[in-house]
Nucleic acid binder design. Structure first.
Lengths: 286, 286
DNA sequence: AAAATAGTGTCTTTGAGACAGTATACT
DNA sequence: AGTATACTGTCTCAAAGACACTATTTT
């Protein structure tokens, strides 16, 4: 949503000053068909933004990044970070830029199997109901980012207030209270968050994506606590250990051990090359 | 993509004549932040379209609906159907409208568990790379539609040429030939088609969506041939029968039988209420 | 010693894959 | 009769769930 554009004001011509737009301007619909210049007002006026569902696991709870809105509408309410897509920018690039501005995280290019510590970033869905922003017609391409637990939300950019909020409380409030409640998320962000959380919950079943919530090196117990936090369940540590260590390419031992959880020292692993888990790690039934 | 807008010209103010736009117009970015009118040219000029990947199974092959472009760019090339999102229209509504114009199919509201013969329609992904349409910046929200085998592609609307094309050939051409080949799909539609096909292939694994390819009443053998066509494999008829009839809520016997495939008469079923298959019907390994 | 976490092993049940065999139509 | 499709049953193997037991640390 458009919500957060106030924190990232769009500056026309910022990286292509002087009207040298790559996109040409046409006069009319019929002229457009013939490849001739046209009047942009002949098309419905759309603004295109990206919104981010940034998820992490903090103290055994799934949390998402929210920013407090400084302006109307929804002034003082929490919202997902986001901003305008620029003139010469692809949608994924806009999302990666917003993520970096908000958290300092580099986005992990999904095509390159990079072993770096970049965050996972993928497109989630697009929201464009006519009334979702009361000011104008805004189409928002929501993205989902998964990150390890970060030191602290760094108030970079022009966001006046940023924090990690537990997803469960946020969604409980969204459904329990009326949309006008000051606790509810701005715009349709509760729906976007809900869709993002469901995507993450289902995707860690059949992919190795849960490692995106972990630091570069982690133990089996830490990975299990990620699954438990994201799904909101408890898993049998023994069966979990057998499953993840028995899936080829999922985990690679680094040789080191750690005792940061107390108890017997645990082997350290890093994410293996496998991206798809077959057979999948199924969520326990309800 | 914007490709097909020529077939569905956008008529400004068509359903809200006389400048009574619901979306207000603002003067500048800073003014926008304060809720004041602004100049739309202060934002990057985006056109928003919907494109459709309409899939069906015809004569044991997965096919998709393509239309021939009458204008530049990509004149004479095949493209996915699509068109502009209107001023007061939600994204899904725009996709449903295009689907009805192109095929006469009513879209099946995913929220309502309707037993009607509407087609399944869901959002797929959004494509917005700056250069994807050489004329202007266009963001396309692609949708995926699944339909039973239709009588014949009805050349409704203003499409001059419409046909069902086998997906396999279309994608083979897209990757084998250079993008400038006259057999290749226009714009980035090969990518969109590929993403849509992969979505369908994976989604029939864990949902009852394969029934969307079938008429209201169908046999187990017909449903199996749907899986075989979509996945491009052959399945053991006996194990398949055991699996689908043993999954509660997947299939409901109607009492009738048919012999339209030759051989022993088969029981007729309709889709049950279950939408998620648990455990899933896994694709055979490669 | 007690408690906490890590890791291995064993038993049972579920379900997928392979395939034998029977039933009922059409040619 | 021969063939095509529909349907049932049986055997085997892979993997998930439940849970006993051992190992190594901190308090």
């Amino acid at each position: 949503m458009p919500d957060t554009e106030t924190r990232k004001p769009f500056r026309p011509g910022e990286e292509g000053e002087g009207g040298e737009r790559t996109t040409r301007v046409y006069r009319q619909k019929d002229d457009y068909d013939r490849g001739m210049p046209y009047d942009p007002s002949a098309f419905p006026p759309f603004a295109v933004t990206v919104d981010l569902v940034v998820l992490t696991v903090r103290s055994h709870a799934l949390c998402t990044l929210v920013v407090r809105r400084g302006e109307e509408p929804f002034q003082g309410r929490w919202a997902l970070p986001g901003g305008f897509v620029r003139d010469d920018e692809d949608l994924g690039a806009a999302a990666a830029r917003e993520l970096a501005e908000e958290t300092g995280l580099r986005a992990h290019d999904p095509s390159a199997p990079s072993p770096d510590n970049g965050a996972h970033l993928e497109q989630l869905a697009t929201y464009g109901a006519p009334g979702r922003d009361p000011r104008m017609r805004v189409v928002s391409v929501a993205h989902l980012a998964l990150a390890p637990d970060l030191p602290a939300p760094r108030p970079g950019g022009d966001a006046n207030s940023v924090r990690w909020a537990p997803v469960e409380k946020l969604l409980d409030q969204a459904w329990a209270t009326d949309p006008g409640s000051p606790d509810a998320l701005a715009f349709d962000h509760a729906q976007i968050l809900s869709d993002g959380v469901e995507r993450a919950r289902s995707k860690i079943e059949y992919s190795s994506l849960a490692t995106a919530f972990c630091p570069p090196e982690f133990t089996v117990g830490e990975l299990r606590r990620v699954y438990e936090a994201v799904w909101g369940v408890t898993l049998d540590p023994r069966n979990f250990h057998r499953k993840v260590t028995g899936t080829p390419g999922f985990l690679v031992p680094t040789g080191g051990t750690t005792t940061r959880q107390g108890g017997r020292p645990a082997q350290l692993f890093r994410a293996g090359g496998a991206t798809l888990l077959n057979p999948p790690m199924l969520r326990p039934e309800v």
